[in-house]
C-alpha cells in the first residue's frame, strides 16, 4: 500500500536519455555498498567481534582505527564492513521475497474470481492494520531473534503492501485492450502473466521494491534499538548506532559513521527509485 503513493518527478540535472545524474550517483553509492556487503567481511582489517583496544573505548578517528573504536573497543570500520551484509542483504532479500509472494498472490487475485480477490484483499488488509514495529516485536519475542526468524517476520510483514501494489498495477493493466486481445487469441493464463502483465508492471514493481527496501532497512535498525534485531557480536548498522548511542553527545565516530552509512544507503535507494518511477511515467 505504501506503493500507492507515486514519487516526485526527478531533478532536472539529467543525462540525456538516461537516468538523472543524481540517480546515477545513487546507483553508484548503492553498488558500492552492495560490494561491501559481499566482500566486506573479507576486506575488514579486524574480525567484527575482536577487542582491538579494550581500554580506549569510543575512541576518535585515528590512523590505526580510521573510524575509531566502539563502546567495547572494537574497530568501527571493520564492524561497518561486516555489518553491511545484514543492512544491505537482509532488506534486499526480504523485500525480494515479499515482492515475489505479493506478485504470486496479486496476479492470482487479478485472474481468479472476485470472491477470492475480495477474501484475499481483506486478509491482507487485516495484516496491514497492525503497526509493523509492534508486530515484529511480538513475533521476535515469541520466536527468538535468529536471522531466519527476522527474515520471515519482515517478509510476512511486507507481503500485504507488495500484494496491494501488484494487484492495483495488474488490474490496471489487465483492463487494457491488449490483454483482452490476448484472451480472445486464446492465450493461456501463464502466457498472459509472463508476456503481457509482468513486463508492463515491472517498473512499478521495481519502484515498490526500492521503497520496501528503505522501510525494511529502517525497521531493522529500529528493532536493533529495541534490542530485537541482529544479535551481537554481529550487528547491522542500526545496531551499531544504537549500541554506541552514549557516544552521540561526545561526537564519537562510532555513532556517526554507521548512521551516515545507513542514511547514504537509504538516500541512494530513494534516488534510484526516483529514476525508475520517472521512466514509468514517461510514455
Amino acid at each position: 500500500m505504501i506503493g500507492a503513493r507515486s514519487l516526485p518527478r526527478p531533478l532536472r540535472l539529467r543525462r540525456p536519455g538516461g537516468w538523472p545524474l543524481l540517480s546515477l550517483a545513487g546507483a553508484a553509492v548503492f553498488a558500492f555498498w552492495a560490494g561491501i556487503a559481499v566482500f566486506g567481511g573479507l576486506l575488514a582489517p579486524h574480525a567484527p567481534g575482536e577487542f582491538v583496544d579494550s581500554w580506549d573505548t569510543l575512541a576518535p578517528v585515528s590512523a590505526q582505527y580510521p573510524l575509531g573504536t566502539d563502546y567495547l573497543g572494537r574497530d568501527v570500520l571493520s564492524r561497518i564492513m561486516a555489518g553491511a551484509k545484514y543492512t544491505v542483504g537482509l532488506p534486499f532479500l526480504t523485500a525480494g521475497l515479499a515482492l515475489f509472494a505479493g506478485l504470486v498472490l496479486g496476479v492470482s487475485a487479478t485472474l481468479m474470481r472476485d470472491a477470492f480477490d475480495t477474501a484475499l484483499s481483506w486478509l491482507m488488509d487485516t495484516f496491514n492494520s497492525l503497526p509493523s514495529t509492534i508486530f515484529a516485536m511480538v513475533a521476535v519475542a515469541g520466536f527468538g531473534t535468529s536471522i531466519p526468524v527476522l527474515a520471515t517476520v519482515i517478509t510476512v510483514l511486507y507481503i500485504p503492501s507488495a500484494y496491494r501494489n501488484v494487484r492495483a498495477a495488474a488490474q490496471t493493466v489487465s483492463r487494457l485492450d491488449f490483454i483482452d486481445a490476448a484472451r480472445v487469441r486464446g492465450e493461456s493464463s501463464l502466457y498472459i502473466i509472463f508476456r503481457e502483465i509482468l513486463p508492463n508492471i515491472l517498473p512499478n514493481l521495481l519502484t515498490h521494491f526500492g521503497i520496501m527496501f528503505i522501510y525494511i532497512a529502517l525497521l531493522l535498525s529500529g528493532l536493533s534499538f529495541l534490542g530485537l534485531g541482529i544479535q551481537p557480536p554481529e550487528a547491522d548498522w542500526g545496531a551499531l548506532v544504537a549500541e554506541n548511542m552514549v557516544g552521540l553527545s561526545y561526537g564519537a565516530p562510532a555513532v556517526f559513521a554507521p548512521a551516515l552509512c545507513l542514511i547514504s544507503l537509504t538516500v541512494s535507494m530513494t534516488l534510484m527509485v526516483d529514476a525508475v518511477s520517472r521512466r514509468r511515467k514517461e510514455p
Binding site: T57, Y71, V246, G247, Y250
Partner: peptide
Amino acid sequence: INPRSSKLIER
C-alpha cells in the same frame, strides 16, 4: 551506568 560510559561521564 555501564562501566564503559564512565569514561565519557568523567568529562
